[in-house]
Design a protein around this nucleic acid. Structure first.
Lengths: 248, 248
DNA sequence: TAGTGGTCTAGACCACCGG
DNA sequence: CGGTGGTCTAGACCACTAT
C-alpha cells in the first residue's frame, strides 16, 4: 500500500480552522474590525456552524476575539496588563488604586474555602465588601472582600447612608491595623451570575480568580476573592507593569 | 394572566444542569468516583448529549471533573497548590525545584512577545530549554526558557551527549550571573499540541501561562514561558504555599 | 424588524482505552 | 471487542442589539 502518508493523525477540523483564522487575524484584520457572521464564515469554510463556533470559542478564550450577542464578532485588542502585586504592600482600598467600592453588608456564612483561609468558623460574623476594578476605562475585575467583624469591632457601616460609603467604612476601619504580610493564589474559574454582570460577560465566562489573604497581628485579617476577566486581562506581578503595557 | 412567575428569565439548561451536578458532586460522590457515561446522564436529565457536555465542560474547567477518552468521567481531586513565587529569588534550575530539564536547542527566531521581553531582535541567536514540572507526582507544567546566546557565551550545550544534559548546561551557564530581579505575568491560554502532550491533555486545553523575565546586569537575561494545567493547578504566590495545601 | 450570537436537538462517526 | 469521551452535522428556536 506504501502511501506517503505517515501516521495519519487527522487534525480536528476546529483545530485547523482555529489556526487558519488565527493567521488571518494576524495578517488581514485590524483591532476592532468586525468579522463576517458565523453562518457566513461556516459556509465559507464548508463546516457546520457548531464546528466554526468551537474554533471561535478557542480564539475568544485566547483573547483574540470578542463576541457580543446581537452585535457580532470583532478582533479584540491586546490584553490589558493589570497590576496585581504592586511593590508596596498595602491594604485594599488604599489611595490611588483602581478599585471602586460598591457596597458592604454582613453575613454569618462565608464560603468554606474563605473560612479556612481566615482560620475562623464558617458561622462567625463577617463583613463583606464588594468592589469593582476599572483599569484603562475597562471593567476588568469584581471582588468580594471578607473581613471578620472581630477585626473591625467599631465598624458601624450599616449606618452609612450610601452603599459605597458603607464599603469605605469597612475599608477605613481595616486600614488602622498594621499590615504584616500577604499571600495569594491564582486559579481558573467561571463567572457567577453576579460577577458576570459586573464584568459585562455571560455567566460561566472564564475568569482568573485571585485569592488574597491579608495578615495582621500574626493572624489572617481579611480575605479578598477577586475575579478578573480572563479574556481581556493579563495579571502582572512585580515590576513588570510597565513592561507588559509595552508588550501589549 | 397573573402567573406567579415573576421576570421569567429562563436560565439556560446547561447552566442549571451544571448547578445540579455540582451539588450532586458535593453530596453524593467522592473523589475518584466515576460518573455514569454521558449518554446515560443526558437521558436521565432529559437533555441532548451536547447540552450535557456543555455542563460537564464547565465543571471540568472549574477542576471539579476529569474526563478521559475511552475511560470515563471521574470526580477530580482538589486542585494542587503550586508554588510559583518562592521567597528566595533564584535562577531557573536551582537545586531543589520541581523542574526536570528535558532538552535544549538553539534558534534564531523566537516568538515576538518573547523577543520584546528580552529587548532583543527577533533574529538574534537564542538557546531554548524545555523543562517539565512534576509536583506531588503529577505533571503540572511545561516550560520553554529562552536565553540569548550572548548571555551564556561559553555555553556549548550542543556537545552534551544526552538531551537533559544539554538543558542543564544552559541552566548552569545562566547561574553564574547575579540575579537582580524578576517580574511575571499570568494569563489564560490554550495548550499547544506539544504542551498538551507533556501535560497529558488534549490540544486546546485551558492552561495558565506564566511568563517570567529574569533580569541581570540591568538587562533581561532570560524569559521563561511556563504553561500550567488550569484544571488541576492553583498557582500560589508569597508564603501561601502551605496554606493552599491545607485549603485543598 | 432584521441580523447577530447563544442555546438546543437528535442523530452520526471517530479515536482511544480496557478487558 | 464493547464502551467511553471527542468531533461533526444540519437543522431549529431564542435573546439581544441596533436601526
Amino acid at each position: 500500500m506504501g502511501t506517503t502518508q505517515l501516521e495519519t493523525v487527522p487534525e480536528p477540523k476546529y483545530w485547523h480552522l482555529k489556526t487558519v483564522l488565527s493567521e488571518a487575524l494576524d495578517s488581514e484584520f485590524s483591532v476592532g474590525e468586525i468579522l463576517p457572521n458565523e453562518r457566513d464564515l461556516a459556509a465559507r469554510f464548508g463546516v457546520a456552524r457548531a464546528t466554526l463556533r468551537q474554533a471561535l470559542e478557542q480564539l475568544e478564550l485566547e483573547g483574540r476575539l470578542q463576541r457580543r450577542r446581537g452585535v457580532g464578532t470583532t478582533v479584540a485588542p491586546p490584553r490589558v496588563g493589570v497590576a496585581v502585586d504592586p511593590a508596596r504592600h498595602t491594604w485594599p482600598g488604599a489611595a490611588g488604586d483602581d478599585w471602586e467600592p460598591v457596597d458592604a453588608g454582613s453575613t454569618d456564612t462565608v464560603p468554606a474555602p474563605v473560612a479556612r483561609l481566615l482560620e475562623a468558623e464558617a458561622a462567625a460574623p463577617v463583613h463583606v465588601v464588594r468592589r469593582n476594578r476599572v483599569t484603562a476605562g475597562r471593567s476588568v475585575a469584581a471582588e468580594l472582600l471578607y473581613v471578620p467583624a472581630a477585626v473591625v469591632p467599631g465598624c458601624a457601616e450599616i449606618a452609612a447612608v450610601s452603599a459605597p460609603a458603607r464599603a469605605r467604612a469597612v475599608l477605613d476601619a481595616l486600614a488602622v491595623h498594621a499590615l504584616e504580610g500577604r499571600d495569594r493564589t491564582v486559579e481558573l474559574g467561571s463567572a457567577s451570575a453576579e460577577d458576570a454582570k459586573a464584568l459585562d460577560r455571560l455567566p460561566g465566562a472564564p475568569v482568573l480568580v485571585v485569592t488574597t489573604r491579608y495578615v495582621s497581628g500574626g493572624r489572617p485579617a481579611a480575605v479578598a476573592v477577586s475575579t478578573y476577566r480572563a479574556d481581556t486581562c493579563r495579571l502582572t506581578f512585580g515590576e513588570s507593569e510597565a513592561v507588559s503595557l509595552l508588550a501589549g
